[in-house]
Design a protein around this nucleic acid. Structure first.
Lengths: 334, 334
DNA sequence: TTGAAAGCGCTAACAG
DNA sequence: CTGTTAGCGCTTTCAA
């Protein structure tokens, strides 16, 4: 654990000189090339690595951004994380991940804690009840960018897929294929992205002159176990008997597939299937499940760069919103 | 951003008094109950939150542990992360995740960087070429526990599944079901866990008097794309024509399923399948894929508690090794 | 061209 | 029972 002081002592210069050189400020400080070279050499020999904690305390910067998610095992998260980490690295940032699900009861939650660690900025996939945390960050002037959703009452930058357009595209596809009795499986989470999807489903039906009835909607509980959700969907399909079903999220699609399997229905002969948000297995699973793919990489990149803008804009704080289109991937389930 | 100093000034006491109270040292410091109460009240009013960076600089502790993985999108990681985060939280630790895949080229890798941030301990799922990083941590007396594998030359604590026993169990199952020509699909990663699996396969065959030939082994490239691996497996099955195939890792199973689908083989009529390391879709995918389930929760817990021991053992540094059994889940693919 | 010194917020030994 | 003070390692202003 070599410190600047040690290097300085070893050479017989002051710590500040060493600091200047090691931070590439030798030019503006007009430190002689000889000195600079010597300092760099000794630093290398001693294996000097800056103490980030001291740096952070002194400067208030940490060169760390946080990626906060509901649960770290989601597929959306996995895909996102990779890209964000890449981008971050290119600009010399580290990203640390936090999940909110573990500490609901505690008053000391991830966001507060990471704030205490002087994290420079936050990328957040918001979930129900997080308004206050977001507001907290906003109040403390921490740069924040939301992904996948947002809170209508809380002015933030965000980037998300165009849910409405995506679902509409999917429903249209089903209708064009000749399906009339189309069901929609969503969850009871009270977030705009889900509301948008539900709304898009209903309105597209109406737009295409198909009757919309409440029975066509299956609202599963978000907090249930997988098995429970599967059972809910199973019952729903058994009683409603739709010709086609659209799942509003990929985990719902997975449960739905299980339900359909349990009911011994054939896809697409017995029931057609389409799912919002693609998954690897949708390609693998026979006969191949049609889906709406979110442009996850683009979402990640856009979000990261928005965050960087917020972090470095000394001027004003214009929040920006970005919406990207989903792509329909037609397989044999529809 | 309230500081201890502010609280102190507001009440008219010294910062140290405040610090003692806020850290629960009021008893041993014999601070009057009146003072203590007042301090706590004001702290709450002002919304005091300890500056972790300053704390860390002063004490050298961060109350953070790092979980280092190859890639953050693996299923093994997802499952692990949840449990570890729970456990950590119970003991007042935060966990931050780092992936090593992003920064192979850089000389400044995750481990070094996190070390600079004074992370208290490391949980690492090692991958090829990480010996030097592990050694670095060991040299700096950082507590380290490895998961899933280990390096023979580097003395560390670790916890992993009993690969040999697991694979043997799987192969025995296949043999008992009457399959004679059994193939094994693994990868070329040079880590003990893979070697153990390969060895177990070969030796179990011999033990049960089945002929082992090189052709029964399909060694895929670890760094290839999914599509490439799928193609390798496809070719392998086409030429070798095994009655049953065992996949040595779950991602190999997924690729293998795709390959089998491409070849239009029926499972298990055309080819029986078994996979090491279970996955949700193995249950869903028709007809249900037999697998060896790793006790991930137990692995996570054991690893975390080993780490805690290492972190708090003031005495000696006895490395401990833990091996847990895999469980066979018999479905209809075998 | 370089060095001295202050200070980020906190803890903890020591002194009252 | 409480306050003073030093110092963790670093950056940066100011002075030389």
């Amino acid at each position: 654990v070599t410190s600047i002081k040690e290097i300085a002592k070893k050479i017989g210069v002051s710590p500040s000189t060493v600091s200047f050189v090691l931070n590439g400020k030798e030019k503006e400080m007009r430190i002689s090339e000889t000195r600079a070279k010597e300092i760099r050499k000794v630093a290398r020999q001693l294996g000097y690595q800056r103490n980030q904690v001291a740096f952070s305390l002194r400067t208030g910067k940490s060169k760390i951004i946080a990626l906060i998610v509901d649960t770290i095992s989601g597929s959306f998260f996995s895909a996102l994380a990779r890209t964000i980490e890449q981008e971050a690295q290119n600009l010399g940032y580290r990203v640390i991940y936090g999940s909110t699900i573990a500490n609901l009861n505690k008053d000391e939650n991830v966001i507060q804690v990471l704030h205490q660690y002087h994290v420079d900025g936050f990328l957040i996939i918001p979930s129900e009840g997080m308004e206050k945390d977001i507001s907290f960050l906003l109040a403390h002037k921490k740069p924040v960018v939301l992904l996948d959703s947002y809170f209508p009452g809380v002015p933030t930058s965000y980037v998300m897929v165009d849910n409405y357009e995506g679902i509409a595209k999917g429903v249209e596809h089903l209708i064009n294929k000749g399906y009339k009795k189309i069901a929609f499986v969503c969850n009871d989470i009270k977030m705009v992205q889900m509301e948008e999807r539900k709304k898009a489903f209903i309105e597209t039906l109406k737009k295409r002159k198909l009757p919309y009835k409440k029975q066509l909607l299956c609202v599963t509980k978000y907090n249930s176990e997988k098995e429970e959700i599967t059972r809910e969907i199973e019952t729903f399909i058994k009683t409603t008997k739709p010709e086609a079903v659209m799942f509003a999220a990929n985990y719902l699609g997975v449960c739905g597939l299980q339900a359909i399997k349990n009911l011994r229905l054939k896809i697409p002969a017995g029931i057609a299937v389409i799912c919002f948000d693609d998954l690897d297995i949708f390609n693998l699973f026979p006969p191949g499940i049609t889906s709406l793919r979110q442009p996850i990489k683009e979402i990640a990149k856009a979000a990261f760069h928005l965050l960087m803008e917020e972090m470095h804009s000394t001027t004003k704080k214009k929040k920006k919103q970005v919406r990207l289109k989903a792509e329909i991937i037609i397989r044999h389930s529809s």
